[in-house]
């Protein structure tokens, strides 16, 4: 398998202005007020050195709590925002070096598409379903003839099982499942090679979720796409993905084949995550409950494990040294001082 997308050491820091989010506002206020010391800019490490790759035809799952940097990572990969450092290689070309504002002119724009979260809010309320699906065809594929456009839009709508008589409707006249289809149709209109799916089913009822998931699997086979599947719902990730990466506070803490992640997790955080899935109420599940909130992502200590404090297995070694990579099998690794024994 060849790599379609390869990400190395990708980082995104946000500078915080003034004394924002400081632990001790008074101290920094006095420092700023009475000394001439230059203001030390605090950095929020949203994504902090992420490495992974996606092969052709593979679907990779990305899971983690809110605030762990999933969305920042996704917007960098989709080239909607620029990275602080690191490279994003897509089909052999470094697309990370193209500024996000100019990326729409690159040929890769049509090969890398994204399905946004929450179809109720990500569709333009003043665009009919037809307009929404036609927009990328007009802008990126340069289709302008009405008949050509019509034929292409109808072909895409058929692909996602969207009845053609719904094409003239506005989002508020469509049901949740239909809106999800429009959203997917817009993204696949240009037959992309990589589709990023940001929580595609979280706003849907269970009764329609299954149809949309099956649609995604079928489209992947038909169009030979790769998926990056971001989701809260770990059961869905398990069904759809070949491999899974788990993020915690801007870093990947575990990566491995989907089944192994769920059945034999290495990192204590992954274990807590899988134990929290409802419907798995084994008696021991509550042993793995996490207490408290994640640490602050503002200037984290580089020589400490970021999970320390919530981790059931941590000791003071975790505060002194950054955790090493532990890899019992070639395609499964975790970043932890005390990975769970098999």
């Amino acid at each position: 398998m060849t790599a379609l997308l390869e990400v190395s050491d990708l980082k995104k820091y946000y500078a915080l202005g003034g004394n924002g989010l400081s632990d001790n506002a008074l101290v920094s206020w006095i420092r700023n007020r009475f000394t001439n010391a230059p203001k030390e800019a605090q950095m929020l490490h949203a994504v902090d050195g992420v490495n992974f790759m996606i092969s052709k035809g593979e679907s990779l799952g990305l899971v983690g709590e809110s605030g762990c940097g999933k969305s920042t990572l996704v917007s960098m990969l989709a080239r909607l925002s620029d990275s602080t450092s690191g490279t994003i290689e897509f089909a052999g070309k470094d697309i990370g070096s193209v500024p996000a504002k100019q990326f729409h002119a690159e040929p890769e724009r049509s090969e890398l598409q994204i399905v946004f979260q929450d179809p109720h809010e990500s569709l333009n309320p003043r665009f009919t379903a037809f307009d929404t699906i036609a927009e990328p065809l007009r802008r990126l594929a340069g289709l302008s003839k009405k008949t050509e456009l019509r034929a292409r839009v109808e072909a895409v709508a058929t692909q996602v099982d969207l009845p053609l008589q719904l094409l003239g409707r506005f989002p508020h006249q469509l049901s949740g499942g239909q809106k999800a289809r429009v959203n997917i149709a817009r993204a696949i209109a240009l037959s992309p090679k990589l589709l990023i799916l940001d929580e595609p089913t979280s706003a849907l009822d269970v009764s329609v979720q299954a149809v949309v998931l099956k649609l995604l699997v079928r489209l992947k086979q038909e169009l030979g796409m790769s998926y990056l599947f971001v989701s809260h719902d770990l059961n869905v990730v398990r069904l759809l993905c070949d491999r899974v990466i788990v993020m915690y506070l801007g870093q990947i803490i575990e990566e491995g084949p989907a089944e192994e992640i769920f059945t034999k997790p290495l990192h204590p955080y992954t274990q807590a995550l899988t134990a929290a899935i409802p419907g798995h109420n084994k008696d021991d599940a509550s042993k793995f409950r996490l207490e408290g909130d994640p640490l602050s992502p503002v200037d984290p200590d580089p020589d400490a494990c970021r999970f320390y404090g919530r981790c059931p297995n941590g000791n003071d070694l975790c505060t002194r040294a950054a955790p090493p990579k532990f890899s019992p099998t070639p395609n499964h690794y975790s970043v932890c001082h005390f990975p769970l024994s098999r």
């Binding site: 009764s207 979720q209 299954a210 998931l213 398990r238 069904l239 419907g279």
Partner: peptide, 23 residues
């Protein structure tokens, strides 16, 4: 029964889950 069938419950494959037709 349909509702239970539509809920992914970990393990199994995508063929095991089925949507509920209609609204």
């Amino acid at each position: 029964a349909k509702l239970m069938k539509a809920t992914p419950n970990g393990g199994g494959s995508l063929d095991d889950i089925a949507s509920i037709p209609g609204g």
